[in-house]
Design a protein around this nucleic acid. Structure first.
Lengths: 181, 181
DNA sequence: AAAATACGTCAATAATGCTGACATATTTTT
DNA sequence: AAAAATATGTCAGCATTATTGACGTATTTT
């Protein structure tokens, strides 16, 4: 064990596979699918000097206008400092505006501008088209299965975040003040 | 238009939704699902001082032992310089070994060691468990639909990469020397 | 009045990607 | 045999997106 080079493990030449009891097919498919899924908006974002982080912020602010900073952090699971830069850029470029919270004026409610709405839609369009095509290709009527599967892939304790978003077919919204009335 | 602050666009208070003709449900589900899907291995990797990049390299080297550097770059769609760092670390920590290509000695064939194989399996295990649970939760017999959907989400010209990988049910491998003999 | 909260910001650091340039070994072409 | 192309490695610098820690300010709660 003196020489490091001779201590190297021997090469394994057999591929891992499903026989190891692991679902490699879907693991890989998920990787490739997500990679290409994000590539469409990435190209558009590059024209604005934005990145994926901007996309995510823009998306959720458009989906839940009036979102506070704390709520956004909770959805994105990033830190305040990470959010700060991209949010500032989106505000400076007039894609997002902040309004003081009506009940608690410490809070900043985030709203898209018309410009921000337009960009969010432009980014979502190719993704939606890809999904639509994939649903078609893989046989119609799979939509419900796909939704159930994807939702089941999310950590159970985080599925609440999904249910807050509008127009999800798995639940009905009872009111806009998502409230503890 | 002298003052910038007054030139700000007005806040839009209505959420975007499916009525805009865009499949926001699945877009979001895909984001959340992928986020949590990668969180399991991320925790394990942190113990080794590795990141997601190491995971991907380790994964594909285990799936296709003997892969050359160029082939790996093509699968991962990153640059040589980006790969260099993580690959070097994986070699230094004895997870991967390099052998000169038998036909072309300029090439470096990449193989996992026993240690590398073990880590790859440890990383894949929670992901596979999550998939298995999700398939169960969303009703058995969806597996084929899910695979078709995910595959259809991948850019058509890149689906060839998937078919190269072992034990994919959509094709049969004709030989191990993937060769133009 | 004091404490807690929501947010903003400054500074430093890390992981992962990028481009460009150049070196070395090896194979292919001329 | 010489020249060109190829596969890989490496150096240097840079961008993006994330991290942690610390501190300031406005506001609300205790």
């Amino acid at each position: 064990m003196a020489d490091r080079k001779t201590a190297r493990g021997a090469p394994i030449k057999t591929p891992v596979g499903e026989q190891d009891g692991i679902d490699f097919s879907i693991i890989e498919l998920f990787f490739f699918a997500y990679r290409d899924f994000t590539s469409d908006p990435d190209e558009i974002l590059a024209d604005y000097g934005f990145g994926r982080a901007h996309h995510r912020v823009l998306h959720f602010v458009n989906r839940r206008p009036g979102l506070t900073v704390a709520e956004l952090l909770d959805v994105l699971k990033i830190t305040k400092q990470s959010l700060a830069r991209v949010l500032k850029q989106l505000i400076d470029t007039d894609h997002i505006v902040q309004l003081p919270g009506p009940r608690d004026r410490r809070q900043r409610e985030l709203y898209p501008t018309e410009k921000g709405r337009a960009l969010a839609l432009a980014l979502a369009r190719p993704q939606s088209r890809r999904i639509h095509t994939a649903l078609g290709d893989s046989g119609l009527g799979n939509r419900a299965s796909i939704e159930l599967f994807l939702k089941a892939m999310v950590n159970p304790e985080l599925r609440a975040q999904i249910d807050i978003l509008p127009a999800n077919p798995t639940q009905k919204r009872s009111g806009d003040d998502h409230g503890e009335h």
